[in-house]
Design a protein around this nucleic acid. Sequence first.
DNA 1: GAGTTTGAAACT
DNA 2: CAGTTTCAAACTC
Length: 795
Amino acid sequence: MDVVSPELNSLLPDEIMDTEAIEDISDSQAHGTNTQSKTTNETTVPMETDTSSNVSSAENTLVAPTSKDSSPSSSSAGNQITISVSSTTSSLPILKQSLATSTTSTKTTNSVSGTTVSTGGLKLSGPFTISAANHQIILNKVATAQASEASKSSATCHQVIKQEGQKLLVTAIGKSGSPIVLQLPNSKAPVGQTSADPKIQTPQFKVVTIGGRPELKPLVGCTTNQMTALQTQQLKAVQIAKKTPTSSAPIKFIITKTVNSKGASPQSQVVAGRVLTQTSSVLPTKTITLTEPIGTSLQSIPGKKIAISPLKTPSKVTVVSVASPTSSAPPKTVTLPVNLALGQQILAVQQSTSASPVKVVSSQATAQNIKPVQSVAVGGVSGSHFKTIIPLATQPNVQQIQVPGSRFHYVRLVTATTASSTVQPSGPSTNSVQTAKPMMVSTGAVRMSVPIVPAQSVKQVAPKPLTTAVQGVSTSQTQQRLIMPATPLPQIQPNFTNLPPGTVLAPAPGGGNVGYAVVPAQYVTQLQQSPFVTLANNSSFSASSGVQTQARLPVNGVSTTESTSRPRKPCNCTKSQCLKLYCDCFANGEFCNNCNCNNCFNNLEHETERLKAIKTCLDRNPEAFKPKIGKGKEGESDRRHSKGCNCKRSGCLKNYCECYEAKIMCSSICKCIGCKNFEESPERKTLMHLADAAEVRVQQQTAAKTKLSSQISDLLMRTTPVIPTGGGRLPYTFVTKEVLEATCECLLERAKCSEQTLQPQAEAERMILEEFGHCLMSIINSAGKAKVDCASINC
DNA sequence: GAGTTTGAAACT
DNA sequence: CAGTTTCAAACTC
């Protein structure tokens, strides 16, 4: 359902990317409350997010903070709306006005339920869909779900949205426990201004969506309930469409929240807007100022190079913002990826040219002797808040930003002055890491694709070492978490001479002190090593759910990203230069690594060509890098091929068929001939049975091998004496040379005795055998005794 | 491992 | 949009 009229949509900025959560939309439409916003931008930079992710049935809730709520209220007394958005399972979100002194009245109408939502002096309650009557903002809640933890989420995740007249409306990405105040900036205010003056009225309409989830703070003492809620979170797609960045016309914002009934899928939240600057106000309240964008495209920013990949999995490219040590200019407002999406959402990395002070989301190092860090959090997608903690004590600092769903590491290197001056202590935290909050968002410049890891991605959970020097934790439900080391990265600083091949350093436009460098994610991974901890706000948050290494890149030929389930196979491309969709690596938005390809251009050394190829592919098919397996229509299979297969000879029962390969059945959109890949297909059932049987056999064999190996290891452990000093173990041999010699001597002695006694040969042989038996018994007995002794030693 | 088959992607 | 070609993976031997 399009909630943006074409004429209004034309006014939207280019940097707002089409989310196109088709499947989710379809799914949400089934709930009757979904809205879809689709922009027609032709992005030069791939922006893609996966909306096909399955999301838990939790539902976003707009809840006014209660009096007991810890979330601070907005500094503005008028027209202030506190919106708490959480992924709780509340069936009906509640949007209430936090202050009764509202004077303006922007009335929005819930197009679906008909509930009128007034932001001016009226409480906002009822169905979640909110739409601005003047096409300025639309908040739609797609689906409803079981009401369960609304109260919890409301208490933990609040966002204060302030509306200036009819100009602004912001929603949603908030950090749990860290309400965000979204405030309209003064139209005359410089970009990046974070004035919280509520009296300033601005004619411009700004929308910022910030996704927040209470369970997104697994590292900050997230409760079990929160973690549980994480599992059940629903997909939230917050979308802001904007065109014509220079247009002064009112901007239409569309915030679409999509919720489907599937759990465990990453949620998508998008934070968009022309410029969203968030100051690190008194925590947990966040003030966000929206400002005008400076640029609209990646290319529009000279000197800035950002590796963009239509990726599904993270950690392929690292974008490093390099601070210029010589720059004396005041810290600039640096735009960090704010648009988040686990589902066909947008990631925007923008840098404002404003001279306003750097707005930094602060993170607090706590009692764990952790250096002050800069925490950048973007997310709120299905519990996928990611955090980037940047050590600030040294210079230049490295800021690494990870966006859920993105395979990129965004690392910004800034001077210590810049970073440290902007850091503010965060609110109390029970953990070493403060809940990350969206940093500033400035318009302008870069659009990036944020492919989302498929829903089947394995969540990662790693225990957080309490005593390590972990600076930060980035959490994402489906993405890798990256933790920067407590110490600065000497490899990257200060002269950046140690950057890996392919690294591109580019100063910020205008000679600012911030630039970007594109470095391989692998390099970043290498930098991280042990100090990094991969964390996930997995629902269970248990070690059993899987611990993943930092590296997304294949390690020893096995990609840890796709992890335990299906490591990506190395490609064997020979003619495509790995720059066409023939190449699985390229199609998956990954760099080739440990592949067998020839003349590969799918690497940082050929980033230009690669970006060009990406653009070409996107020009040909804007959804080229989107997951092919998406959500089917209601009543159909949960997963289906987005385009359908065209098999003719395989019967769709071989891996030639993309449907079969994805282990899904063909759907109505398939054009296959002789399809046997349907529910009742006997061939399919047979294959399934065979496959199941084979799998069972493999599992049994594996289990047997494992058990046998374990037993052998256990036996060796028990029978191997431990060398106290060396720590090693020597192989314990019962039949040593000495034992053999002794045995032989015994046998010879017995033979001599037989000869001396003139016994018959048969009797002599018998006696020798008996002696041998005695020797064996002695050896066995000695071995048994030694075994017991060793066991006691080991214990 | 080489050759064949297959269907998606690319091209016309 | 349809037909053809290209391509690399899947498959067979």
